[in-house]
Nucleic acid binder design. Sequence first.
DNA 1: TCAAAAGTGTTTATAATACACCCATGG
DNA 2: CCATGGGTGTATTATAAACACTTTTGA
Lengths: 205, 205
Amino acid sequence: MLQVLLWERAKEPFAGCWSLPGGYLAPREKLEESIRRHLAAKVDVRELSHLEQLETLSDPDRHPDEWQLVTAYLGLVPTDVDPAVPADTAWHALETLPTMAFDHERIALAGRERLRAKLSYTNLGFALAPATFTMAELRDLYAAALGHDVSATNLKRVLLRRGVLEPIGDHRPPGPSGGRPAELYRFRTRSIAITDQFAVLRPPA
Amino acid sequence: MLQVLLWERAKEPFAGCWSLPGGYLAPREKLEESIRRHLAAKVDVRELSHLEQLETLSDPDRHPDEWQLVTAYLGLVPTDVDPAVPADTAWHALETLPTMAFDHERIALAGRERLRAKLSYTNLGFALAPATFTMAELRDLYAAALGHDVSATNLKRVLLRRGVLEPIGDHRPPGPSGGRPAELYRFRTRSIAITDQFAVLRPPA
DNA sequence: TCAAAAGTGTTTATAATACACCCATGG
DNA sequence: CCATGGGTGTATTATAAACACTTTTGA
């Protein structure tokens, strides 16, 4: 299940609504540095496995009081890290978002779309997966992110053929109900790379 | 041949260098409106067949004098419109860019990459093509934009199967050296649409 | 020895490229 | 009637989904 980290606004505007973590840009600060600074300070998230810019929104009516531009980013953390978050902050399933402040619902959904698209033509799964995992675990992760069933069999073959995954040579013992021990895999690189560049209209051989 | 519209800076910083058309955002103005306003005012381009946001750049050193953020857009015009441009403005081939101001070379190349990527999974060709065209003309256009040879035969089949193109039922008479008259085609819709959404990891049937 | 979980092999579907061949025109 | 440019049909290739079957474990 994909989740977003939100915090509940105490003050107007949109008091009681939930908003994406973020804040103002400091003078001469880079946008990416600003995001990392606010995530560390406000919600105590210090380690992102991936961060990329989504879009800059400029509608003058997006904030009721002041003229405010926002640059939205998509930041990802692996499923196995559960950063301790402050009291006014909570993870919410993307399928059941609460009432959100400003245009933050649109931003959150745009982030999901970006993630979904990139899962299919890049190695971006690394950003959600723990360091090592079984194919069944990775299958569940992709299924949750994509919102539809994924076959572990085919997922494995696609990612192995592309050289995205590699087996680490170790196995995970089966659970109490038995079963064959699962091979453990890892992502070959943990930074984003396009793995399926020329889907169509590729240059002649 | 892909071309960018550039204007030559008269004043410092970067006097004599070429820069992308653009300008400051007015209070409470939307970014997209601002782009259109500056294009109309400075380079007399009023009709864009497509406009999309690329990226917001925030490096504090990108401008030598002041702290300046820029949001870059990709704007396209069809090959058959040749807007009259002012004296200090000229179209430049993307392969042989002159010395450019600020980070504008990076932005121009990012725009080309965006265009190339989207040509293969959307109908974005409409933004570069005239209202009607032969497959040979469209082939040349795709080849110029993609930077590699494209087969008219296969391009036609790909775009027809996807329902992107349709024949208009008319033909273009052959040139002085003879040849079979070419069928004329048009893009079925002239606004962007994804035509090849689930290249891989598509949901089960 | 059976159920459960994981992995492999094979078939099928689809979509794109490559290429040979056929069609329509002007000189 | 031939050169030129355009179009169609077919083979090949590539990639991924679907599915049956095999392997390895715990009870």
